[in-house]
Design a protein around this nucleic acid. Structure first.
Lengths: 220, 220
DNA sequence: GTCTATACCGTGATAGAC
DNA sequence: GTCTATCACGGTATAGAC
């Protein structure tokens, strides 16, 4: 039937995206071949090029698919904490929470697709080549919304201090998303780098205190 | 002369390392070919394999060369702040400073070689593939020294909290080392991601406050 | 939309001359 | 130590049948 054909078509396209996501996360853009993607997705080699134009088009499609989803959730969380706060705006801690809760606090890491996506974001954010381009494109429209809320919650703070604080926040978050296991080695197994719930609980107070210490009202 | 021959030999080996460092930093391990390294170093293709065994050997040699240098400086800074402190040990802030000052506070970014190396470390630390392996190998012996000092400066704190705090610290630091320009875009040019001195000044109070907020003495 | 087949080029590695 | 030459393989991309 037509229904089945359409369903099948979608399935293949999504299978290609899923496979590419997992491979890009583990081996980076250049480390992945179109052959590997096709094989993993159990699809013909030419099909990925047909759907996404070329390898870079596939890569961007992988990034865009879940950034749309996650940014919507984060924006919703931000709007929620703004609307439930008074006229003075939400507390700093609530803003910090809204930024990471949709990523770290909902068990996404149990889903293999999301886990691969998180690893990929970690890689991209720290890449001198892609970090200033792809992250700006896919995430910074959302980050700007958070920056506005942070400015309100930190009255009198220098803009530069807010941007740097958010940068440190971003570094802590994305390294966490990478789940490299380094922390397991370092702590002789006492801490698990894939325990995102534990990271989430601790990142909120850590980062909130950092913002408060750095973003004090300007003198004069 | 023999002198010149040896000098030339060393020069070539170092040229290979310098070129590989720059290329690995920008394109990652798989993104770089031995041919690109040879061409950049103006050296024959087979020479890199001769000196370093294979591509992975070259990569490890690149990582090891400067990690030895930088870790020695950091250890020296740590020992200095320990010996100038009293029996109670150094302040938390001094330990945090010792960890990043040799990297961020001495103008290393003006040297192209060091800049490439910093970009490379950023990439490796966030890589699910390499982060839990190469970083453990090349940096964690040093990190363990710092963890010991942190434990003394944060009496009664849970070990897990100290490890997580250091992890957030590491994320903030390595994203800074990447110098991706994302911060420039986000702030409309008000903040420059390659201004490591500005990052250094701000990271110390940010991270110190984070440690203090998270690593409080355990109850009961 | 899907697949077969293939063009064409770059890859890491090494054997062997000098 | 250095270089030439070469191997066997895997890379992206696409033309064209169905």
């Amino acid at each position: 039937m037509a229904k089945t054909a359409v369903k099948n078509k979608v399935r293949r396209k999504d299978r290609i995206l899923d496979t590419a996501e997992a491979l890009f996360a583990r081996m980076g853009f250049v480390g992945v071949s179109m052959r590997m993607v096709a094989e993993g997705a159990q699809v013909d080699l030419a099909l990925a090029s047909y759907h996404f134009g070329n390898k870079r088009g596939l890569f961007d499609a992988v990034l865009a698919r879940r950034s749309d989803i996650i940014n919507e959730k984060r924006l919703e969380a931000l709007r929620d904490c703004i609307s439930s706060a008074g006229a003075a705006g939400p507390e700093l801690e609530a803003i910090v929470d809204a930024f990471i809760q949709p990523l770290l606090g909902v068990g996404l890491e149990k889903d293999a697709g999301w886990r691969h996506y998180m690893e990929l974001i970690a890689l991209v954010n720290s890449s001198h080549e892609l970090g200033g381009q792809a992250m700006t494109q896919f995430f910074d429209p959302l980050v700007n919304e958070f920056i506005q809320a942070l400015k309100k919650a930190l009255p009198g703070a220098a803009e530069e201090d807010i941007y740097w604080s958010h940068h440190f926040f971003s570094g802590a978050l994305t390294l966490t998303l990478a789940q490299t296991g380094r922390l397991d080695n370092l702590s002789s197994g006492k801490v698990k780098s894939n325990d995102l719930e534990a990271a989430y609980r601790r990142m909120v107070p850590f980062v909130t205190a950092g913002f408060k210490a750095l973003c004090k009202p300007e003198k004069g």
